[in-house]
Nucleic acid binder design. Structure first.
Lengths: 346, 346
DNA sequence: CTGAAAGCGCTAACAA
DNA sequence: TTGTTAGCGCTTTCAG
């Protein structure tokens, strides 16, 4: 079924066969022939010929000549994560819509790997670069500037460049309010009260979420104690063990409410909870800052907050289109899923 | 903090500053200077100079010259899917380990988009191309051959090219055996018996899984009836509705066992199941051909089968390394998660 | 041990 | 209306 592979047909080959010059063929194939006032007849003849000869441009050569490649980069920590893969999806769709080719590179939260990748993508002359969840944003931004590379940060903001991130503060505040509603007031505060669980307090996202939690609690007259904020990282096993420890400290019960900060933390917690009697579980209100479709289908209600990946990406692209280059931080309100209000209605 | 952007330093600039020629600099920077018998001193001087001048190669120019780009392509249906994002992760890791830059493009299960993408990636002179979950493999393989592009298929095999896919038959057989064990023999066969649910019987993966199901049932003396194989696609809503319909047909009960063919089908089913009384749910044995970490943490046991993405990718790469180019189909046994045996032990 | 020269395949001035 | 020319920045013979 396959045509003989004719050893890489070039523009000149096509030109020869068409009895035209390379530049004419180039113009015809790129649709710029109108501007070059090449006769429609010639153009069409060339286009037809090129197609049937199976010609296709060498994009490296074009890129070299035009000093831009038609590639757009996205750097992110990992693929195997719902948020980042949603981001990839949205990014890809937008890139292809513009006829660009998405290059998505996972850097495993390794700052040196991130820097290498920026250099590499600059080497390929990507037209612009999106950087999500960077571990060292400022250093990357500097690198991009050295390479005169348009760039924008997502999720983890950069102090020196356009950034668009979720409104972590309000997302956490919303979940906190739901927990406050679900738990009787006398059990709001104090050890064993509503507890923020998981995440890394030194990172932007978690610190904003913790602020949202703390201030919403305070506004409800339930200023959280130190023991009500347990930022024990994002590791699932770690979360499991920390929750077990908390359960022990509380004399064999769960806190009145748990705001689980990320899906991995939720998984760890769920693994612990799975071993508890139903009554005990029903006595604790849950909420999760992250989304998984199965989350809404458990034996207890679980409001979840989901980052609006589409909106984040679209907004980032708009910033670049607008030629934004200076520092600027735009927030996108995340989406509340499985809210009890909606669940009650259904 | 940022260095002045010195308007794209080229190899010739470095050569000039070093008082050497372009070819010498090139050799020094590429580590080929030994072979060219350039003095270590010169080489080191040049390397130091280049680094401090902030030089970095133009990979498009290099690629043009060498007729290979250092890019490797992966085409897949979508990012927002656990299996494919796991695949991306494994692919990326392997690519970067080899100093190559992964280019992952999602084509939305659109055959024309797939073809376009192959052409585009060929235009960028990717060193090789991995194609996962293709909707029209043979046509893509032909395209690749036209472009003399080394390629390999994953997950969805191609009749004319090296392919590596999960052993769907045995994966399904294993799940079926677990269901047979969990359900009393008199309820194995007949309508309301163990039922294969979801997927598309015309597609490779599902058809192999159905075969595995059917033959394992038969071997257990429980040849499934037509009503016990409901290949209603992969859509979650559709699965929900079909399961509701089945429940109605069975006079308001679930079948004795359900082999849910994909996580989306499972989601739809779970949404329906969530509304049923506990006793009814406990009366049905479940299994799922796909993996999600939350699956193991539900109120009923759920054995799941997970494709070994790492092994798939590694094997595919080995085939390319070995220069495989003809048709060939290699199977990778998937992994059984949440098996009752293991659960019982813990 | 090192430099000069010849392109890789394409596009965009500039001529004709 | 079209062809000629001059590179984009790099690697790689081939001569020194």
């Amino acid at each position: 079924v396959s045509t003989r592979a004719p050893q890489k047909l070039t523009l000149h080959d096509v030109a020869a066969r068409a009895g035209a010059s390379a530049s004419t063929v180039s113009a015809a194939l790129n649709g710029t022939w109108r501007a070059r006032r090449i006769s429609a007849e010639t153009a069409e003849r060339i286009i037809a010929l090129a197609r049937e000869a199976g010609y296709s441009v060498n994009l490296q050569a074009r890129g070299l000549r035009k000093a831009r490649s038609g590639l757009v980069g996205l750097i992110l920590p990992e693929h195997a994560n719902r948020f980042f893969s949603d981001l990839s999806q949205a990014f890809s769709a937008e890139a292809r819509k513009r006829g660009l080719c998405p290059v998505i590179v996972a850097t495993e939260r390794n700052p040196e790997e991130e820097r290498q990748t920026v250099r590499q993508l600059a080497g390929y002359a990507v037209d612009s670069l999106f950087i999500a969840g960077a571990s060292a944003p400022e250093s990357l931004s500097a690198l991009c500037r050295e390479h005169a590379l348009a760039h924008v940060f997502l999720d983890q903001p950069c102090a020196d460049a356009p950034s668009v991130v979720s409104d972590n503060y309000h997302g956490a505040a919303e979940l906190t309010r739901l927990l406050l509603d679900a738990v009787p007031p006398e059990r709001h505060a104090g050890d064993g009260g509503i507890t923020f669980f998981g995440g890394n307090a030194t990172m932007h996202a978690s610190s904003r979420r913790i602020a949202g939690f703390r201030e919403t609690m305070r506004a409800a007259g339930a200023e959280p104690s130190g023991g009500q904020i347990i930022a024990c990282g994002y590791d699932s096993d770690r979360a499991h063990d920390e929750l077990a420890a908390l359960h022990r400290r509380l004399g064999g019960r769960l806190p009145s409410g748990l705001l689980l900060n990320s899906i991995t933390v939720f998984e760890g917690a769920l693994r612990f909870i799975a071993g508890l009697p139903d009554a005990e579980v029903r006595d604790c209100a849950f909420a999760c800052y992250d989304y998984d479709p199965l989350g809404g289908l458990l034996r207890f209600p679980l409001p979840m907050v989901r980052q609006r990946h589409r909106a984040l990406v679209r907004h980032a692209w708009e910033m670049l289109d607008a030629g934004a280059t200076g520092p600027r931080l735009d927030l996108v309100r995340p989406e509340l899923c499985n809210s009890p209000a909606v669940a009650a209605a259904s």
